[in-house]
C-alpha cells in the first residue's frame, strides 16, 4: 500500500528499471556489433577488450545519464511536495484555533492547487456549519430560558418535600444553558475580533472572588484571594476572563468537600490559579474533559466538562492556556506575557 502511494519510491523504481533496460539494450548492441570483430582474437585478449568496450559504451553513458536524472527528479519531487508538508504542519499546529483557518495557496505548485482549494472550500463550509450549529444552540438556550424560568417560579410556590430537589435539578439545567450561551458568545466575539483592553488580573480576580464568596460561604466552604506585590496585566476581554475564572471556581467548589477551602492565586506572571481540596486533575483527564466535553470521575453531573471546555475556548481566544497541576490541586489560567 505505502509503495503504491509514495511518488518518489515509484520514480526511483521506474528510473532503476529504465537504467536496467538501457544497460541491457546497450549491452546487446555492443555484443551484437562487436561479436564478429572479436571472433579472431584469443579468449583472454577478447575478454579484456570486451570489458573495456562495455565500460566505455554501457556503464559510462548509463551512469552519466541516470545519476543526474535521478538526483534532479528526486529534488523536484521533494520541492514540489514541500509546500504540502508545510501546510500539513500548519494544519497540525492550528489545533484549537481551527475557526477561520485556510491553507496558504501562494506557494503551492499549480498541480496541487485543485486539491488545496477544495480543502479550503471544505473548511469554509465546515466553519459555516459550525457557526449555524452554534447559533442554533444559542437560540435553543435562549428559547429555553422562559419555560425554565416559569418552571422554577412554579416550583418556588410548591410547598412540597420534593420541591427542593426539583429546584436543584432546574438550577443545574439553568447552569448548563448559561454555559451554552456563554460558549456561543465567545465564538461570536472571536469572529467579531473585538478590540482587546488592558486588564489587571488582580482586579478581575478580586471582583469574581467577591461575587462568588456569598454562595460559597453559604455552602459551608471558604474562599480566599492571594495576590503578590506585582500586578500582572494582560490584553483581553474582562467579561470573558471573569467567566473563565468563575467556571474554574465553580469547578473547585464542586470537588472541594464541605468545610474545605478554595484559594485563588494571582501570579506568578500573567496567570491566575485556582486551588481546591479535590483529588487533583491529571493533565490527560483535563485534555479529555476539554476536548470532548467528557466528564472525568473528578466532576459531577452538572456539565463540569462543558464548563472547562468553555474555559479552554476563552483561553485560546486570549492566546493563553488552561493548565493543571494535580500535585498542587490547581487549575491555572496562563495568559501570554504582555
Amino acid at each position: 500500500m505505502t509503495d503504491r502511494r509514495s511518488v518518489s519510491r515509484r520514480l526511483k523504481r521506474g528510473l532503476g528499471l529504465i537504467g536496467l533496460v538501457g544497460t541491457f539494450l546497450l549491452l546487446a548492441a555492443v555484443v551484437f556489433f562487436y561479436s564478429f570483430t572479436f571472433a579472431h582474437l584469443d579468449a583472454q585478449a577478447a575478454m579484456a577488450r570486451a570489458s573495456r568496450e562495455m565500460l566505455e559504451h554501457v556503464a559510462l553513458p548509463v551512469a552519466i545519464l541516470m545519476i543526474p536524472v535521478t538526483v534532479l527528479v528526486l529534488r523536484v519531487i521533494r520541492q514540489a511536495f514541500r509546500p504540502l508538508e508545510e501546510a500539513a504542519a500548519e494544519i497540525e499546529a492550528v489545533q484549537g484555533h481551527e475557526r477561520g483557518f485556510r491553507i496558504d495557496n501562494s506557494q503551492m505548485p499549480t498541480e496541487a492547487l485543485p486539491f488545496t482549494s477544495a480543502v479550503n472550500d471544505l473548511l469554509a463550509r465546515l466553519d459555516e456549519a459550525a457557526k449555524r450549529q452554534e447559533a442554533f444552540a444559542a437560540d435553543v438556550a435562549h428559547e429555553l430560558g422562559t419555560p425554565l424560568a416559569l418552571l422554577s417560579l412554579e416550583l418556588d410556590r410548591l410547598e412540597h418535600d420534593d420541591a427542593e430537589r426539583l429546584k436543584k435539578d432546574v438550577a443545574a439545567m439553568r447552569r448548563l444553558i448559561d454555559q451554552l450561551m456563554l460558549l456561543a458568545q465567545i465564538d461570536a466575539d472571536a469572529v467579531a475580533q473585538i478590540p482587546l483592553a488592558q486588564i489587571s488580573l488582580s482586579d478581575v480576580a478580586s471582583d469574581v472572588v467577591g461575587a462568588a464568596a456569598p454562595a460559597i460561604i453559604a455552602g459551608g466552604k471558604t474562599i480566599e484571594l492571594v495576590t503578590g506585590i506585582h500586578a500582572p496585566v494582560t490584553r483581553g476581554r474582562r467579561e470573558a476572563i471573569s467567566a473563565a475564572l468563575r467556571n474554574l471556581i465553580e469547578n473547585a467548589v464542586r470537588v472541594t468537600p464541605a468545610g474545605g477551602a478554595i484559594q485563588v492565586l494571582v501570579g506568578p506572571g500573567a496567570s491566575i490559579s485556582v486551588r481546591d481540596e479535590g483529588p487533583g486533575l491529571p493533565p490527560d483527564r483535563l485534555r479529555n474533559l476539554v476536548q470532548r466535553h467528557r466528564r472525568a470521575d473528578h466532576a459531577s453531573k452538572d456539565g463540569a466538562g462543558l464548563g472547562l471546555a468553555i474555559v479552554e475556548r476563552i483561553m485560546a481566544a486570549h492566546e493563553g492556556t488552561l493548565e493543571t497541576d494535580p500535585d498542587r490541586h490547581e487549575l491555572i489560567l496562563r495568559f501570554p506575557e504582555p
Binding site: G210, A213, V226
Partner: peptide
C-alpha cells in the same frame, strides 16, 4: 461576619 481573605468582608 465573614472574612474573604484578600478581598474583603461580608455580613450575612
Amino acid at each position: 461576619l465573614h472574612t474573604v481573605r484578600g478581598v474583603g468582608y461580608m455580613l450575612k
